[in-house]
Design a protein around this nucleic acid. Sequence first.
DNA 1: ACTGTCTGTGCTT
DNA 2: AAGCACAGACAGT
Length: 297
Amino acid sequence: MARIGVPELSGDAYGVPVSQPPSDAATERVARACRAMHEVGGPMRLADLATIAGCSVRQVQRDFAEVLATTPVDYGRCVRTDTARMALRSTANVTDAIYDAGYGSVRAFYEETARRLGMTPSDYAAGAPAHVLLWSVTPSQIGDIIAIASPRGLCRVVIGDSTQLLEPTLSEFPGATLVRDEDAMVDVMRALTAIADGVDAPDLPMLVTGTAFQARVWSALREIPTGETRTYSEVAAAIGEPQAVRAVANACGANPTALAIPCHRVIRTDGSLGGYHWGLEVKEHLLTAERTGTHTG
DNA sequence: ACTGTCTGTGCTT
DNA sequence: AAGCACAGACAGT
């Protein structure tokens, strides 16, 4: 039976397919390239991005694949749809907003955003190449953990009472064939329960999609080490948008893969917990477990 | 391990 | 036909 993840990268204590955290140099190059595209408001030529990043074209492509799990052009398109979305929110003139965002025609906007704006990340995942999605559920200290994955990575992780949550969670992927497969998912579930126990676990390969902004927030969250926390303001600053504190909080709340993207490690500046989609008791339990270090190795 | 060069494929104009 | 994005393979450090 197919295993989840990237077998050739496996080989740590959990036997879980590991995607190594990107290097600082790669993250920095990607950040520079992204900043440039945000200034332009859309995709840029690869050669220009390479100049800005200070490396070869090939390296830019590799960095984007590694850090953001996407390509430079695709990221640029996300930026452009984000730009259009903002513009549409603040103006009544649809046509001007679409042209200002960098689309050559209203039709081009609808052709591109029909796939992006109109779709939730879950819908996108269901329509992605992997039409067969595997799922599993396991009990843990913080409640049942339900995980759904494609062969390319985790798509969804939810926490709670499986008798209540299972049906609606699986229903989020109406276009996919969902197969319960404990065998293929065993290592993934082991890693997720480790995180639930407050134990450090390797990064899991993920196949999630969101807006360009959400992608930046989520990759920033993955860099918070086990046992540490950041404030919403700190995360906003880390992605170069110090004023976007509320947007960061929203992106945390939209995290499709609980635990794997550790949004529970983001708290308020005053030290209070802030919010958590799966219940504040769960967030508190996770942070306490991580802080007291149940680390077994 | 990280990076650049070369190369083939596929898409768009 | 030309230009471009992309990713695999390979070599240099």
